[in-house]
Amino acid sequence: MFRFLALTLGLGLAMLTGCNKSGPDSAAAPAGGSPAGKRLTVALMPKSKGNAYFVSCKQGAEQAAKDLGVELIFDGPVNPDPAKQNEIIENWITLGVDVIAAACENKDGISTALKKARDKGIKVVTYDSDANPDARDFFVNQATPEGIGNALMDEAARLCGNEGEFAIITASLTAQNMIEWQKFIEARRVAKYPGMKMVALRPCDDLKDKAQAEATTLLSAFPNLKLLMNICSPAVPGAAEAVKQAGKAGKVKVIGLGLPNENRRYVKDGTTDTVILWKTVDLGYLTVQSAVALARGELKPGATSFHGGKLGDFKIAGDNILLGEPFKFTKDNIDQFDF
């Protein structure tokens, strides 16, 4: 035991001297606003890794990083643990990155960490899903929760002729941004489509196979179902396959948020009616462009437009850089996209 204690003490001392040695170094290396000549470091955080949606964002981000000659870090939690996002951001702060771009799993939770980063002079932008406004400089806005909710509900009502039963398949009951979307879907339904009735909400754990099973059950448990609304991307092809196997293609509509490559087959054969999304590669590209511009002082609060490299000019509303309206992938246009 004493030998052990001695060793531990020795290690502790070694670490402390290490700290003392590197302490001043780190203070000398400024956290934000790097001196001219040093390569900027952009840290990009997805909501989770191993998620095809964010992989396509990363593609665009890497392109932008190459165009601008900056270093790009891409890291995030591997499982849906929102606290893990905070840990990674806190690690980036001490790492000394120049700008952080985050897609936020839990708005209130992550804002604490992002504010800490801003206090240290690190620039912060959010993309995909926003943090609290005082925790970031800009939000690269591909669609607000309200915009997504409205688009989904409007499309559902259009396909159902403004009345009928529909069900929602979500990733998990606790996923923060899906909770927000549901809120706006419901608000829109109450305000504009009282004839529509939401009969069930089922989680699919972000798994396609489970979504397929849930959809199969929903179709039979609610025989009057007219539409399945899928608000997590693996659920869209899962639900479409279930509808197809039940022989209800065309009778029960399928819509949702998803990637064109995962849904091409079903959109083309008419099982899935509409897939709503934005150009995710562009989202990643624009996010890194604006993050770098912000860090270099080219993008300032109050600006009304932003030049996003090869993508051209984007409007800024308040502190939101607008990517544009959500895009609807349908039979007619889905073949133009590959992501």
Binding site: G50, D205, D206, L207, K208, D209, Q212, P234, P237, G238, E241, E262, R265
Partner: peptide, 16 residues
């Protein structure tokens, strides 16, 4: 046996 039930493979499959 699971693979043949749909025309796609989800790499997250089998979780839990």
């Amino acid at each position: 046996m699971n693979l043949v039930q749909s025309p796609q493979v989800d790499p997250s499959t089998g979780r839990m």
